[in-house]
Amino acid sequence: MSGIAKTPEPPYYAVIFTSERTAGDNGYSAMGDRMVGLASAQPGFLGVESVRDEQGVGITVSYWASLEAIAHWKQHAVHQAAQKLGKAEWYQRFGLRVCKVERDQFFEM
């Protein structure tokens, strides 16, 4: 996951997942890659951007065409299993925000 996601003209939705990790990988990286692959195959998925700092605080923003697409992803069985593992092993705490993107602007050299 690198770079700026290429999203369509607004409106669309952003799901912002902010987390503080526990120590060690414990399968986290592999599951993260799997989640991106599965999400990418979901109808309505538009892209993802993700960063994590040295202290373990991360922000992942996924972009979606509709609230319905977000709801379907939330119910995906493998995604639900990953959520349970996240609560049990990978995160000290996390927050989730869902936003409607009404305007965007980009710059590129």
Rank of each mutant, 00 (worst) to 15 (best):
M1G: 14
S2M: 14
I4D: 00
A5V: 06
K6C: 04
P8D: 07
P8C: 07
P8W: 07
E9Y: 00
A14K: 08
V15L: 11
I16Y: 04
T18K: 11
T18M: 13
T22C: 00
A23C: 00
D25M: 08
N26H: 15
S29L: 08
S29M: 07
M31Q: 09
G32W: 01
G32Q: 12
D33W: 04
G37E: 14
L38T: 07
A39V: 10
A39C: 10
A41H: 08
A41T: 08
Q42D: 05
F45I: 04
G47D: 09
V48M: 06
E49M: 04
E49K: 08
S50W: 01
V51D: 13
D53A: 04
V57T: 14
G58L: 05
T60F: 07
S62H: 09
S62T: 15
A65F: 00
A65H: 06
E68M: 04
A69H: 12
I70H: 03
A77V: 11
V78H: 03
H79L: 10
H79K: 09
A81D: 15
A81M: 11
A81C: 02
Q83S: 12
K84C: 02
L85E: 14
G86F: 07
G86W: 08
A88R: 13
E89W: 10
E89P: 02
W90R: 06
Q92V: 15
R93G: 07
F94A: 07
V98H: 05
C99Y: 04
C99A: 13
C99H: 05
E102G: 13
E102L: 13
F106H: 15
E108K: 13
